[in-house]
Design a protein around this nucleic acid. Sequence first.
RNA 1: GCGCCCGUAGCUCAGCGGAUCAGAGUAUUGGCCUCCGAAGCCAAGGGUCGUGGGUUCGAAUCCCGCCGGGCGCGCCA
Length: 540
Amino acid sequence: MASDPKAQIEAALRAALAKVAPAHASAPILLERPKQADHGDLSTNIALQLAKQLGRRPREFAEQLAASIAGDAFERPEVAGPGFINFRLKAGARFGVIARVLEQGARYGWSRSGGGEPVQVEFVSANPTGPLHVGHGRQAALGDAIATLLESQGHKVTREYYYNDAGAQIDKLAWSVQARAKGIRPGERGWPEEGYAGEYIEDIAREYKGDANDVPEVRRFAVAYLRREQDADLAAFGVKFDVYYLESSLYTEGKVEAVLKALVASGKTYEKDGALWLRTTDYGDDKDRVVRKSDGSYTYFVPDVAYHVTKWQRGFKRVINVQGTDHHSTVTRVRAGLQALGLGIPPGWPEYVLHSLVKVTRGGEEVKISKRAGSYVTVRDLIDWVGRDAVRFFLVSRKADSEFVFDVDLARERSDENPVYYVQYAHARLCSVFAQWGGKPATLGSVRLDALRGDREALLASLLDEFPETLAKAAREAAPHDIAFYLRELAAQFHSYYNAERILVDDEELRSARLALCAAVRQTLANGLSLIGVSAPEKM
RNA sequence: GCGCCCGUAGCUCAGCGGAUCAGAGUAUUGGCCUCCGAAGCCAAGGGUCGUGGGUUCGAAUCCCGCCGGGCGCGCCA
């Protein structure tokens, strides 16, 4: 297997540093890929970083450093600008990546750096009181991609869904269904205050054959019905969970009670106005929080803490919760509650990825209503309108914390403007080339690559080379949008190459070499798409 | 009012452990299919990186103020 040229350059730089500036032998080395071709394939600003500390002139220091660097993967480094050191790879090293991709196949880009460390990603966690809305869709797309990214880096990931199937909102659901079953419509006399008005309530009422006066039975039926619906939506979205954790089980197993007792025992609680409060201000909250209301019932805060205690006790030293920014106030609170328990949980545990809300537009207008849900657009609506792949790709293509406007027209009516098709098209196009060629891609792994001389080919190889580090960074930062942007760039570079050069040329050596490069591009596109849950079609 | 997040090209957005960082898509304009898929490619125009200070040899990037927008500020979840 050809070694990674970047790793080799880094090692060579390290060795040179040890010789020229022993005191800084372990300084962090940043190797970048310059945009401009005349700055080489890789470049470092290490001389600029260290010159100041060494009290030396950057350019002079860079020259000295460059002079003592040696390696067989690259040409003699050049010093440029104020003191950058630029590296140009030798052809063999540059295209070595092709063999690596073809050898590793679907695992190209994956690593074992996670060492099997268990991580739990909790996401969606919608109340079973209605269909999933677009915000849940963003969470599903983000959470699933983050989970997959972590798996790609060697973590053992558990995808978890927390069902808030206990509490006041479930009562409201039961009453709404009950009213519907009795023929009462929203707004009419006898309709529950703040009841759920969506069409799905009517569906549930119609399906319910039992006694409308049996509220517990109505509740059981409605919750089960909506869970099935949500499961179907998630299945249509291609998202699977390993664990569904029921809030109700926290009560039936006495975990809520236990946590309350432990909080009292911690001495961090006090009585005021007939309620029991926790001193969360001791842990950075801006005000203390009620844990037991004056009517004797608990606030949702208590089961929340109890739930997180179970995560810790289940052995997850690392937990990532994906939530909307509308819940960001719970971050401090949950952590504070956990701290008060004194279980040795780190103050910053669990981690959170907060995403801004999603706005849906169509025909230039914001869409707020959907028949199915009554007051919001559902994930299912979106999938019906634009297809699963487009929804997935769109929702993951922006930073979590930027507000997202989902333009239905853009994703649907003018599909040629749709970025997901652009990437998928590159993949389908490649498949078409291979179909036309008719040979066996497996034979390309050991083909001679000396015929690859073009700038576009070099650029493609460089992009392929970049994939593993892009993936590692995306996983580290829980930022799937990095993958979407990478795929866009790789697809663009391929389309450009495809238009400029013919792949199936007569010259056998050149044709094989180009096919090998193309096979590597196709593999990497497929790998990246799978990370964000988007299909890689052979035909479109 | 307080807390968190966000202001980058007409529009939608990357870049934000400082330098080789002024970028992509889209829109507009002009080119490219007797040739492996034109859902594609090539080219042009377009930005005082919200604003005012500060740190630095060097700031879209770090710090402070201000302006604008989002979310939160329940004995709701």
